[in-house]
Simulated scan of single mutants.
Amino acid sequence: MLAVVTGASSGIGYELAVELARRGYDLVVASAGERLTEAAETFRALGRNVLEARVDLATPDGVDELWEEIEELGQPVDVACINAGVGVGGLFKDTDLDEELDMVSLNCASTIHLAKYVVKQMTARGEGRILFTSSIAGEMVAPREAVYAATKAFVLSFAHSLRFELKDTGVTVTALQPGPTDTDFFHRAGMDNTKVGSEGKSESQPDDVAKEGLEALFAEKDHVYAASLKTKIEGKLANAIPGEVKGAMHEKMARPLDEK
């Protein structure tokens, strides 16, 4: 059995790979980060075959290179965890345009690009499981993370629609929707000096998020809010809370601590 995990060098992707290795899957792990090699050694220590793909998934060439390496294995993909993503924090009028366009390329374009290959292969075989990492932010009004939240809403919508399209093919689709999680996401997004980046991320641990995501995947659920109780409650209430209220809640968590 073979599983593909993108963004596997750290955080939720790393824990997804660990959990899949424990479940008996050989792995293809992809990341542009230097930590991938060390992570892959950890996965191999769990007794699985592991292929490292050091690729930049924010580029079409990077996605193509990853898929070529997968095809060269000659082994069908049983599970695909399309997880790679980044964030950019700050007021939209102040944030860097190039950083946000790169984020859209990684979070949205590469997700569609890789999913196209995965879905074609899985539907041809009549079986497979796909897990998309979205976010609770995909259902929120998210000032100071406006573009990031929009990318995750895109992924969530795509996952739900694709699930419906594939309902009679033997291929299942699940959306993983974490809340703030204790990873380096907020540091990379430039949000260390915020309440959510310094305190809120401790609400969930990445291993718990990964386990809940895979449990939902193998149970063939459409989505899961993971992993804290607060995230689950926010998810259940997301469509009932007025947008202005959701925006005010997110603004309080995402603005710099030294800003009044």
Rank of each mutant, 00 (worst) to 15 (best):
M1K: 12
A3H: 12
A3F: 12
V4I: 15
V5Y: 08
G7E: 15
A8Q: 08
A8V: 14
S9R: 13
S9L: 14
G11A: 13
G11E: 14
G11N: 10
I12V: 12
Y14C: 00
E15C: 03
E15W: 07
E15A: 03
A17H: 02
E19T: 07
L20W: 08
A21I: 08
R22E: 15
R23M: 09
R23N: 07
G24V: 08
G24S: 08
Y25A: 06
D26I: 11
D26C: 09
D26A: 11
D26W: 11
L27H: 12
V28R: 06
A30T: 13
A30W: 12
S31P: 04
A32S: 14
A32T: 09
G33C: 10
E34L: 13
E34T: 12
E38S: 11
E38W: 06
T42D: 12
T42C: 06
F43Q: 03
A45P: 02
A45V: 07
A45L: 09
L46V: 09
L46S: 07
L46M: 09
R48P: 06
R48G: 07
N49K: 11
V50F: 10
L51Y: 10
L51I: 14
A53F: 10
A53M: 14
R54L: 14
V55S: 11
D56P: 10
L57H: 07
T59C: 12
G62S: 12
V63T: 08
V63Q: 05
D64H: 04
D64G: 02
L66E: 06
L66I: 08
L66Q: 05
E68H: 02
E69C: 02
I70M: 04
E72A: 04
E72H: 02
L73Y: 01
L73T: 00
L73C: 00
G74K: 01
V77R: 00
V77G: 00
D78E: 00
V79I: 00
A80R: 00
C81K: 01
I82K: 01
N83M: 03
A84G: 06
A84E: 09
A84F: 06
A84M: 09
G85L: 09
V88C: 10
G90P: 03
L91C: 10
L91A: 15
F92E: 10
F92V: 15
F92N: 11
K93Q: 13
D94N: 13
D94E: 14
D96P: 10
D96F: 15
L97W: 15
L97N: 14
L97D: 15
E100L: 15
E100S: 14
L101V: 15
L101D: 11
D102Y: 13
D102H: 15
L106H: 05
N107W: 09
N107D: 14
S110V: 07
S110E: 08
T111C: 04
I112A: 01
I112Y: 02
H113C: 01
L114S: 02
L114A: 04
V118S: 00
V118M: 05
K120S: 02
Q121R: 05
Q121K: 04
R125C: 06
R125V: 05
R125G: 03
G126I: 08
I130L: 00
T133M: 01
T133S: 05
S134G: 03
S134P: 02
A137K: 05
G138H: 04
M140F: 13
V141T: 15
A142W: 06
A142P: 02
A142D: 09
P143I: 15
